[in-house]
């Protein structure tokens, strides 16, 4: 049991930090530009595919640096030549633009790499068990993932609080018009944030593609969850995104272990119900199966009752 708990906590951390890497960029983009970027998860996927491709040529470590850079440049270009053009048609058009981009990137990936999953494996230099606890192993790659994401969290925090550009970004988060009025080049800041956010997604992709699986549907699988993270965490709050990522990852990891149905739970407190009849399905739902719906339930409730999110600074 102790072993199970420890490893579940570790699994939560690994998955949670991956989510955080993805959502940190998105939350900045969303709260600054008001754009619900549907293509964010697509940049994550591109990061994974670029990472795979570069790895086959130049090795994992080059991929880890080059792939996020490429994705970042692509992101900046999308902002400069796409989003800025549609900006004049309003938020709906911007949002739909990113949705269209999502489809194009997914198909583009099919076009270039085909529909099958890529043989994207843990690099040899990280493919060993870091430590063995009881008799479970914790792989070095997972530890490396944790390391990278913690580094990103600290790095982002420092950039946002200690640098000039970070201060402008922070100001633009809450008072975009004011920042513009002060003579800062807000469009350029937008482009940078969009590019930077995409690069972070790309980095998450390089790692996540190996950790999970590199395939054309990977964007669709993670996309909605990332939205949940930024909504639950709150607009413009990195800490919120961090907390929400861990929370959601924990929900999904721990729910798997709980194979109790409502009937069992009621049985514990001494209530027996007739588990047939019209509500049969509801009585028989196991907690382990509720895992996938909890994030969305969270998100809807949060939006209805506390649109600011857990640690958000403002609404919309």
């Amino acid at each position: 049991m102790v072993e199970y708990l420890i490893f579940s906590v570790l699994n939560t951390l690994v998955l949670g930090m991956l989510l955080f890497m993805l959502s940190s960029g998105l939350t900045l983009i969303f709260s600054m530009m008001g754009v619900l970027n549907f293509a964010h998860a697509s940049f994550y996927m591109l990061g994974a595919y670029f990472g795979y491709q570069i790895t086959t040529v130049a090795g994992f470590w080059s991929a880890l640096i080059i792939s996020p850079l490429l994705v970042g440049i692509l992101g900046a270009a999308v902002e400069r030549y796409g989003l800025r053009t549609v900006h004049k048609y309003g938020h709906v058009a911007e949002l739909l633009f990113t949705l269209g981009l999502f489809f194009i990137i997914e198909e583009g990936v099919n076009l270039i790499w085909g529909r099958n999953a890529m043989p994207n494996f843990i690099p040899a230099s990280l493919d060993f068990p870091l430590f063995t606890l009881f008799n479970s192993e914790f792989s070095a790659f997972r530890a490396f993932m944790l390391l990278i994401s913690v580094a990103i969290f600290i790095g982002l925090y420092l950039v946002l609080t200690r640098t000039r550009i970070g201060l402008i970004i922070q100001a633009a988060l809450t008072h975009p018009e004011g920042v513009n009025a002060l003579g800062h080049n807000v469009p350029a800041v937008f482009m940078m944030v969009f590019g930077g956010g995409s690069a972070l997604a790309g980095l998450a992709g390089v790692i996540g593609g190996i950790f999970l699986i590199t395939e054309p549907s990977m964007a669709l699988t993670l996309g909605p969850i990332v939205f949940v993270v930024i909504v639950v965490g709150g607009m413009g709050s990195l800490t919120g995104a961090f907390v929400a990522s861990l929370l959601l990852a924990g929900l999904q990891t721990f729910a798997v272990g709980l194979e109790y149905s409502l009937v069992d739970l009621l049985g514990i407190i001494g209530v027996t119900v007739n588990a047939d009849g019209i509500l049969r399905d509801i009585w028989r739902i196991q907690l382990s199966h509720i895992g996938p719906i909890l994030p969305y339930l969270f998100m809807v409730l949060m939006l209805m009752f506390r649109p600011k999110g857990l640690l958000g600074k403002r609404e919309n």
């Binding site: 072993e3 199970y4 579940s8 479970s136 699986i213």
Partner: peptide, 30 residues
């Protein structure tokens, strides 16, 4: 769930905790 799990680690942790020496599975594909 069919084709939706990307990381089986939580399930592996559970299998470990159960002390199983053999797994029977009909899983296919990914």
């Amino acid at each position: 769930p069919l084709g939706k799990v990307k990381d089986f680690s939580p399930y592996i942790a559970k299998i470990k905790a159960s002390g199983a020496d053999t797994i029977i599975t009909g899983n296919w594909g990914a």
